Amino acid sequence: MTVIETLSPPDAAPARRPARTRVIWLFVLVGVLAASVVASLAFGSRTVAWSDLWSALGGAEGTLEEAAVAKRIPRTLLATVAGAALGIAGAVMQGVTRNPLADPGILGVNMGASLAVVTAIAYFGLASASGYIWVAMAGAAVSAVFVYAVGSLGRGGATPLKLALAGAAISAALASLVSAVVLPRTDIGDTFRLWQVGTVGGASYDQLRTVAPYLLAGFVICLASARSLNSLALGDDLAAGLGERVALVRAGAALGAVILCGATTAAVGPIGFVGLLVPHACRLLIGVDHRWLLPFSALSGAVLLTVADVIGRVVARPAEIDVGIVTAIVGAPFFIHIVRRQKVTSL
């Protein structure tokens, strides 16, 4: 019997009703994701007809429209998996820290991965795609530990507000260091500037094959920690009383989140606010049970990043706005709303 079931009322009817609601929302999200994928394939600097879309999905590339769709397929896949990874990573970080403001971007994890990759390329000549991922994961892990250590200083320990402030300050410092590394290198500056904003443009099947094993490992670790995250939500003492090894649970779940953040940042750059928006929206829909919250966060994150990429391509035709800019435009006001709406203490 799980913690959630233990705390449920004895009446079976109320328990079934939320389950039905979750299933309904699950089908809705799957439908929205399918529509988002179709929109990503159909819309861009060149809008294509349905006939061109279906023929391109069948492998045809004889016309400009079919070639455009074929080029959008890996981009759409990358946006989907990257959004899912960031959505789950945000939900796990919020569960591990019991901090409703936790997010890979706000806590400095993405920027730590960025600095590690930029430094390795500029000073150590790193050129391997898999090497980018390992370096990014190491940078994400170091940054996460450092932010948590700084946020734990002083009276009260690692409160949500202190962690958010520490993460924002350290993110700003790391962003300055990234600029300091990139600016003198005119030979790589343009490439880094595009990547630093966060973009899924230029995605390829080779890139997807490289990042897929790491994302799969991160997904498995995070999803396996769902029951334990439910216990952590009750507090460390009660979780320990229920048989959870609190430190081990936190370390394992955080490892999964760091793998997802590092691999995603290596592939698309430091995209912010997805991990903040998505878990909050999912909690409003289906509650706080992480066994449901994590899969819903994956689907919602995939929808958000895919839609943001479509918006960036449509509103600036024939040019495009990088997806990291679109998510920042949406996410910054949402972050301010969260801080102003309620007294932020813990989940």
Rank of each mutant, 00 (worst) to 15 (best):
F124T: 09
A212G: 11
F296P: 04
V344I: 15
L26N: 03
I188P: 01
L347C: 06
V310C: 04
A12G: 10
I133Q: 01
L293V: 09
T191F: 13
I88S: 02
S171E: 05
A298D: 03
G235L: 10
C261S: 15
D309I: 05
L294Y: 04
G95R: 00
L107A: 02
D103H: 08
F124H: 12
A158E: 05
L229C: 10
R245A: 14
A120D: 01
C282G: 00
A168W: 07
F192A: 04
G235M: 10
G31A: 10
V32M: 07
I24T: 13
F27L: 15
V38Y: 07
E5K: 13
A113P: 00
A240H: 11
V182G: 01
V182H: 00
Q207L: 15
G235R: 11
V142K: 06
G167N: 04
E65F: 08
V326I: 15
Y205V: 13
L260Y: 00
L86P: 02
L294V: 11
V109L: 15
L57W: 03
A233K: 07
A120S: 13
T186K: 14
A164D: 02
T97E: 03
I4L: 12
R313G: 01
A70Y: 05
A89I: 03
G59I: 08
F146S: 12
G95A: 09
I106H: 02
L126G: 09
S176C: 12
I121F: 06
L26P: 02
I221Q: 02
L238Q: 13
A35E: 07
V30K: 06
A168S: 15
P10I: 13
A316F: 12
G105D: 00
D103Q: 10
G262A: 08
R341E: 08
A217Y: 04
G112Q: 02
G139L: 05
A164Q: 05
A166Q: 06
M111G: 04
P14R: 11
D11I: 08
Y205W: 15
L153D: 06
L248M: 13
C282L: 08
L242F: 09
V28M: 09
W54D: 03
S228L: 09
H280I: 11
K71G: 15
G275V: 00
A116K: 02
A149F: 11
A281M: 13
S179T: 14
A15Q: 14
S152D: 04
A253M: 10
T186N: 13
E61L: 06
L177V: 14
E320Y: 08
R283I: 07
F219V: 09
A298K: 05
N110V: 03
D322N: 14
A251Y: 10
L255G: 08
V145F: 12
F296T: 00
T21M: 12
P318A: 11
S8W: 01
P213V: 09
A328D: 08
P9S: 14
V181H: 05
L208S: 07
R250C: 09
D11A: 15
A141P: 00
A302W: 02
T345I: 12
P74A: 12
